Computed example of a mutant assay.
Amino acid sequence: MKPRILILPGWQNSGPAHWQSRWEALHGDERVEQADWQRPLRGDWMARLDAVLRDDAQARPAVLVAHSLGCHLVAAWAAHSQLVARVQAALLVAPPDPEQADFPLDLHNWRVPLRQRLPFRATLVASSDDSYCTLERAGGFASDWGASLVLAGARGHLNGESGLGDWPEGRALLEALLDER
């Protein structure tokens, strides 16, 4: 059975120039919509991901494609959900460092990241000049989560402002995760 590709944007959602939005339009990937993109509550975001997985009548396997705060959603959700067996893998792109001094106040309930090993395959993609997370911290998240680390070079926060377009390199990483079934 072909897995669902679930798009998990970060804080403030992903705009039209973001590779996640482009993948949704190009490939039919499914965005997990949140009730509040501006003041996200971790528990609410986790409950929404659970609901999306639970409400799939066919109980298809899923692959999570997370950007920024969406990466921390995956880690927090995986630590508490009864539905982790429905997830085959995760592509985690540009996780921010919630313990950074300048982490936004609106994200206060994300300040303590969950760092346990994920119960499914994962690849973490990090940029060497991401202002939201040092490469060292990104490597620490990858290690803690049991994810393979892929270095994207100096590409900023790997978002719409990074000029990635359809980001074929990222899609190739996703395809590699799908091929590992």
Rank of each mutant, 00 (worst) to 15 (best):
G10S: 07
G10V: 00
Q12M: 14
Q12T: 10
Q12E: 14
W19Q: 05
Q20E: 01
S21M: 10
S21R: 04
W23P: 04
A25T: 13
G28M: 06
D29I: 13
D29Y: 12
R31G: 13
V32T: 02
Q34W: 07
A35C: 08
A35Y: 02
A35D: 03
A35W: 02
D36Y: 10
D36Q: 08
Q38C: 05
R39T: 14
P40Y: 08
G43Y: 01
D44W: 12
D44S: 13
M46Q: 05
A47S: 05
L49M: 07
D50H: 07
A51T: 04
V52K: 07
V52A: 07
R54G: 07
R54H: 12
D55A: 13
A59I: 12
R60T: 06
R60W: 03
V63F: 07
V65K: 01
L69A: 11
G70L: 11
C71F: 14
H72S: 10
L73E: 01
V74D: 08
W77I: 00
A78N: 06
A79H: 00
H80C: 05
Q82S: 15
L83I: 04
V87C: 11
A89H: 02
A89D: 03
L91H: 02
L92A: 05
A94R: 05
P95A: 03
P95W: 03
P95R: 03
P96Q: 11
D97V: 12
P104Y: 09
L105K: 10
L105F: 05
H108M: 03
H108Y: 02
N109K: 06
W110F: 13
V112L: 13
V112W: 11
R115V: 15
Q116E: 07
R117F: 04
R117K: 09
